[in-house]
Nucleic acid binder design. Structure first.
Length: 900
RNA sequence: GGGCGCGUAGCUCAGUGGGAGAGCGCUCGCUUCACACGCGAGAGGUCGCAGGUUCGAAACCCGCCGCGCCCACCA
């Protein structure tokens, strides 16, 4: 056996043959030293050098190669690489306080396949992992885990230790202590997540992780906020805001979801200053006291007589005008609608457009506020009665108040008929338990609506994979009705870096925010003091007050491209990585994460944050419903990986087309495992007793196989370029099974032929094909591919170059000859199938000898068959192979005597 | 109500103008010197329905039906 030469004596000039990672990378692929007797293979995995194992196995591959990759820093990012060689990925930071489920495994595998492909193309892949630890999910988890509750009024306790077991009554602790617990708990969560990702084989550079609550993320968030503030792109306003009454915080439009809930429609009689009555229908009778107008459609003649007059609310005796608005539906209810401050978002529109007063009854805790009725407060025709009625509601929750007021209305005779039970969609905060309410409060908003057209244009600039996902983005942008509310009345988040002066009267001057210098960031206005003030001046007249709120989690995660590329922190890295190349994410957060990231980058850099958006689908239950948390927790990802192996789970994931929701299917994982085992065995077979390399594929059958493989490489590459990893896998896999079942069987005779002149062509073709196949599968099955590669190669397959058609050699000697060779593979396969069928039907083993085979076929096909004549005879154990020109393809098989 | 996607074998899906396919499952057979975690063979389909374009449609166009998702509505 020759030694020391290489598969590719003349590496093509293309840069993708060269390492993206400097000296750690081997530029060429060493082939001829392979085989069980070879000595060149390394001891990277504590294996006797250069050995193909007797019984190859998948057992232990994950641990073994995971350690090697870590030790050799296989996936390390070389930050010296020029921008054009960098492929930067804006990885979604998973929420650490939830648990990872199969949906994460699914979509992160897609990203990893693309990352590995790009790396093999010679790109320096910038692929950091982040953890989204900031925000409500962590707060909730800490509250439950330790049995504590954050109370900003409680002073900081430097010696605080959480109770050993959660007490029955939640323990009130300071914000600083609470945040410390959040940080501690997320740290252990993050380690568990990292372990899982490593086990799955994500090719992440683990030296570059980030968190959305870390100081860098805080500094970058605050810096961006201050920049927006300076430019007037962010403002604060006291206004009706979507509000979650359990978390007691503002929420954003994007965080709402509809839930079907039973409800009741009540027909209620209002009085009227003309002496008549006005009937309305409402699902929220508890807000009758908050009614500020009745509305009809301008063209609705039924109520034309009422318009312009005054109606009088039942129970409370408040006079409200009857007005018109085009948004009123004539078909719904009585055609007359009650406007309250505020029952739903449409009320806000009516209130704003018609200039109606505010009469708010609902507090931030979701209970009916104490309000004065009569002279000192809400007006009423009969203040005594109003006070008495409202006393029945005050302090009650929405549901309690609703039940009570229905009784009151029934007693007073103002409820017309029985309430109709209905099923209707109600808006919820996606993490909330009770419907959102609308509460007036002071909040920060980023100007969004005025940029709608520009954002649509950004969406068209972005390359979407699959392309139809852009429609979701455009639908969302076009449907925006208000600016983005980014403030939250919570604790574990990035604080707004703003203080306010308190004037001599003790009023907080929100209109005169005090901002810190850039060099002070990140700051927490709850503990830091603005320049020119003393700590003792906090909260006193003439002093200052810190902004009490934190940013919405999306207000930070919308900056992940800036965070990972370290905008404003490391200009060199930023220039090499931003705008980024790719954003992978699932389709359900296009309206949140994708949208807000585009918005922030547009506002801060007047640019897209990335070129490509690769959108993945969801994992569905076998019954095609979205995988629920409860079910996801039954089959934890770690269990899956342990049961089936990482490569097998990755195989299932990679079979899911980009953007397509995919059913959870353990059966597919078994198929993936089979593919991995097949790769082991086929590699073992090809590499053991490998014949000498003749330097070219001189035999037409070998050449035809390589030509097919060249087309597969081309298709897989094109698919990957289009971010269609699943197609790349499918093409490679289809070829591979054909290669095992037909090609490897057909060439057995020649490869074991003692005459090197006969075996050398197979020797060459096996090296080329096996090398290319192993690399084609490497993005999908990184563990088994690294294993089989290590049997005959020195460095990692994952830093080897992606296969190219050119490396298979100059195959072309005329299109006609090539077409005939390809036809030969088909015809030989057709005949072999007939021979196998005859043996199968005769219940004979496949090696059973065949006395004679007569192939009838078109002359052209018979001519092609001649190219594979010997291989076919050998593979079918055929003694005599004859052909006869005929119009129909037919094969007569004569089995050895006594066989059937 | 608007939009997007999907509908092909029992299941999961590939197939975008000219032979209806793969894997799994099922049936039968074979321990063949890479692999029994294997190999070979077989059964199984009016390609959702209806119309149109075309010499020719699973594919292109129109309509309808069904499923899923997103958005809007929410009195």
């Amino acid at each position: 056996m020759e030694r020391g030469s290489t598969l590719f004596p003349k590496p093509p000039a293309a840069t993708h043959w060269l390492s993206a990672r400097g000296g750690r990378h081997v530029a060429t692929i060493n082939l001829l030293t392979a085989g069980p007797d070879g000595d060149a293979a390394s001891t990277r995995a504590e294996r006797p050098a250069g050995r193909v194992p007797e019984r190859p196995s998948l057992d232990g591959l994950e641990r073994r190669w995971g350690e090697v990759w870590e030790r050799e820093r296989t996936y390390a990012f070389d930050r010296g690489a020029p921008r054009e060689r960098v492929f930067s990925i804006d990885t979604p930071p998973p929420t650490v306080s939830g648990s990872l489920h199969v949906g994460h495994v699914f979509s992160y595998t897609h990203t990893d396949a693309i990352a590995r492909y790009r790396r093999m193309r010679g790109m320096d892949v910038f692929y950091p992992m982040g953890w989204d630890d900031n925000g409500l999910p962590t707060e909730r988890r800490v509250q439950n885990y330790y049995g504590v509750r954050c109370d900003p009024q409680v002073p900081y306790d430097p010696g605080f230790q959480p109770p050993a077991a959660p007490p029955e009554e939640p323990l009130s602790i300071s914000r600083q202590n609470f945040v410390a617990l959040c940080l501690g708990l997320t740290e252990s969560d993050e380690q568990a997540f990292e372990d899982l990702w490593r086990k799955l084989g994500l090719s992440v550079d683990w030296s570059m992780t980030y968190t959305t609550i870390g100081p860098d993320a805080q500094r970058i968030s605050q810096r961006s906020f201050l920049s927006l503030l300076e430019r007037g792109a962010v403002y604060q306003l006291e206004a009706p805001t979507l509000w979650d009454v359990d978390f007691q915080t503002a929420v954003a439009q994007a965080e709402l979801e509809d839930r079907e809930r039973p409800g009741a429609m009540h027909r209620v009689r209002f009085g009227h200053d003309g002496g008549g009555e006005a009937l309305i229908e409402t699902t929220r009778p508890e807000l009758i006291g908050a009614c500020v107008a009745l509305l009809a459609h301008p063209d609705d003649e039924r109520h034309a007589g009422l318009v312009g007059s005054q109606a009088i609310t039942p129970l409370f005796g408040t006079r409200v005008p009857v007005l018109t608005h085009p948004l009123v539906s004539r078909e719904k209810g009585t055609g007359l609608v009650m406007v309250c401050t505020f029952g739903d978002l449409t009320d806000v529109v009516w209130w704003r457009e018609l200039g109606l007063p505010v009469r708010a009854l609902l507090g931030p805790d979701g209970r009916m506020l104490p309000v004065p009725w009569g002279d000192a407060g809400f007006e009423s025709e009969d203040p005594e009665r109003a006070r008495a009625a409202y006393a029945e509601l005050e302090g009650r929750t929405v549901n309690q108040a609703r039940r009570r007021i229905v009784e009151l209305l029934a007693e007073s005779g103002d409820l017309v008929g029985e309430p109709q039970q209905i099923q209707h969609a109600v808006k919820f905060f996606e993490k909330g338990e009770r419907p959102v309410e609308i509460v007036t409060s002071r909040q920060w908003f980023i100007r969004t609506v005025e940029h709608q057209a520009e954002l649509i244009a950004r969406g068209r600039e972005l390359h979407w994979h699959p392309p139809y996902m852009r429609a979701r983005f455009e639908d969302w942008v076009e449907g925006l009705t208000g600016d983005w509310c980014i403030s939250r009345q919570r604790f574990f988040g990035v604080p707004f870096p703003v203080w306010y002066p308190i004037d001599a009267q003790g009023t907080i001057r929100h209109d005169q925010p005090i901002v810190p210098g850039a060099d002070r960031l990140p700051i927490d206005p709850a503990s830091d003091v603005p320049d020119g003030y003393e700590p003792a001046q906090r909260g006193v007249p003439g002093g200052f007050a810190g902004d009490p709120d934190v940013m919405d989690t999306w207000a930070t995660s919308s900056l992940t491209p800036q965070i990972v590329s370290r905008a404003g922190e490391d200009e060199d890295l930023f220039a090499r990585t931003f705008p980024m190349d790719m954003r992978p994410q699932a389709h359900d957060i296009i309206r949140t994460w994708l949208f807000t990231t585009v918005l922030r980058s547009h506002l801060d850099y007047d640019a897209l944050p990335w070129r490509e958006a690769a959108i993945s689908g969801w994992v569905l239950d076998p019954d095609r419903k979205k995988m629920s948390k409860s079910k996801g927790n039954v089959v934890t990802p770690m269990h899956l990986l342990e049961e089936h192996g990482a490569d097998a789970v990755r195989y299932w994931a990679a079979r899911g087309r980009p953007g397509a929701d995919t059913a959870f299917d353990a059966q597919q994982m078994k198929v993936g495992r089979r593919l991995a085992v097949k790769l082991l065995n086929a590699s073992k077979f090809a590499l053991a007793d490998l014949p000498p390399d003749g330097g070219e594929a001189s035999h037409p059958m070998d050449r035809a196989m390589l030509e097919r493989l060249a087309r597969v490489i081309e298709e897989a590459s094109d698919s990957f370029e289009d971010y269609d990893y699943s197609r790349a896998l499918q093409r490679s896999e289809d070829f591979f099974w054909w290669y095992c079942d037909y090609y490897l069987e057909l060439v057995k005779g020649r490869r074991y032929d003692p005459d090197p002149a006969v075996s050398a062509s197979v020797g060459h073709a096996l090296r080329l094909s096996l090398s290319a196949l192993q690399r084609l599968f490497a993005p999908f099955l990184p563990f088994v591919c690294e294993e089989v590669w290590s049997w005959w190669q020195e460095s990692s397959i994952h830093t080897a170059s992606w296969p190219s058609p050119q490396e298979l050699g100059e195959l072309g000697d005329g299109a006609g000859a090539s077409a005939e060779r390809d036809l030969a593979l088909d015809v030989v396969g057709d005949v072999l199938r007939e021979v196998r069928k005859a043996k199968s039907q005769a219940r004979l083993p496949m090696r059973a000898p065949v006395t004679k085979v007569l192939v009838r076929d078109a002359p052209q096909r018979l001519a092609a068959l001649a190219l594979g004549y010997d291989d076919l005879r050998q593979a079918g154990s055929i003694e005599l192979l004859d052909t006869l020109a005929d119009e129909e393809f037919a094969v007569d098989v004569e089995l050895a005597a006594g066989a059937s």
